[in-house]
Amino acid sequence: WTDGQGFFLQFLPARPETRPYERYGAGLNHLGFGAPDAETVTAIRDAMQAAGLEVPEIQDLGGAKALFLKDPDGLRFEITWYPPGVAVVD
Rank of each mutant, 00 (worst) to 15 (best):
H30K: 05
R15C: 07
D3Q: 10
R23K: 07
I79W: 09
L67G: 12
V41Q: 11
M48Y: 11
R45Y: 06
T40N: 02
D71M: 01
M48S: 00
L31H: 07
L53V: 00
L28Y: 07
L67W: 01
F33M: 08
P84R: 13
W1K: 03
T80N: 05
D37V: 09
A87V: 12
W1E: 08
L69I: 15
Y24G: 00
G85A: 13
G74C: 05
T42A: 14
L75V: 14
T18Y: 04
L53N: 06
A87E: 15
R19K: 15
F33W: 12
F11R: 11
M48K: 06
F11K: 05
T40H: 14
T80M: 10
Q59D: 12
V86A: 09
P13Y: 01
L69Q: 07
I58E: 01
V55D: 06
A26S: 12
A51M: 01
V55A: 12
L12R: 09
F77C: 02
R15K: 14
L53F: 11
W81H: 15
T18H: 11
F8Y: 15
L67F: 05
F11D: 05
G32A: 14
L67E: 08
V88C: 12
A35R: 11
W1F: 09
K70R: 13
D37C: 14
G62Y: 05
E57Q: 10
R76Q: 14
F77P: 05
D71S: 04
N29A: 12
T42M: 09
L12T: 11
F68L: 15
L53G: 00
A47M: 05
G74S: 07
L61V: 15
I44R: 03
H30S: 09
G52I: 00
A14K: 03
A38Y: 09
R23E: 07
T80P: 00
Q49Y: 00
T42W: 04
P20L: 10
P83A: 11
P83M: 10
F33K: 00
G4H: 01
P13K: 07
Q10C: 03
G85P: 01
I58V: 14
G74Y: 06
P72W: 07
V55K: 01
G25K: 06
Q59K: 10
A51Q: 08
G74A: 10
L31F: 13
I44H: 05
D46V: 03
D60W: 06
L53K: 02
L61Q: 13
M48R: 11
